[in-house]
Amino acid sequence: MSQVITQDLSFFHLVSGASLPVQLVMLLLLLASFVSWWFIFRKLFTLRQEIKQTDEFENIFWRGSDLNALYQRAAGARHAVGSMERIFEAGFREFTKYQSGVDIGPIMDSTRGAMRAVYQREMDRLESHLSFLATVGSVSPYVGLFGTVWGIMNAFRELSNVGQATIAHVAPGIAEALIATAMGLFAAIPAVIAYNRYASDTAQLATRYESFIEEVSNVLQRRVAKPRDMANFS
């Protein structure tokens, strides 16, 4: 119709014109990108909340509040409880079970064990999906590259059928193939950045929890030792 000579290289035209493997690659990458972004945001919210709750609890704990009151608070309001609070709750519950004057060794062992268990579970929860982000970050560029190579192969194969080869014959094929690489990079870059960021955040939280476990067990040990000393005196 129009006398304007345009090469229709619109995005949708390119995608729909691509060969089936390239389209599959694009679909896969789109899916991977979407899921990885979903996890990125989920993890962002989770970690932010976790850090906030940990800060809060540490603040309360080191202000010298009563441990019994802290335990009641943790056990009562379970919905908004952070990992650190949960660790403390588990440890303190285990500790109270032994109140009737057993040896200090087994008490502290089982208390520490209970806290360790909760700590492991919490770390598992925090680290979930991070491996997916790492996978997407490392693999999706290759998947995109595969799509691109496939598309360029097709473009050149079609070029061999044309007598007089011009760049205009290959250009659309290469453009549509390069979309796959673009999508792969689009999926990979945020995934890698998010993975590094979240991994370091999680590692930070882990050291905080570990040191907290040690500190809590020290505090509890002192609590056990004190009454015994008093008893020896009397």
């Binding site: 619109s10 990108s33 979407f34 972004w37 979903w38 989920r42 919210f45 689009f186």
Partner: peptide, 30 residues
């Protein structure tokens, strides 16, 4: 986990923005 739905929504938003960038940001027609 807080904001699963919200995260999905944000993810959708990011992709919509990327798509818009691809479609409108580049001058596809020469």
């Amino acid at each position: 986990e807080p904001g699963k739905l919200r995260a999905a929504l944000f993810a959708l938003l990011v992709h919509a923005a990327f798509l818009a960038l691809l479609v409108f940001g580049l001058n596809w027609k020469n």
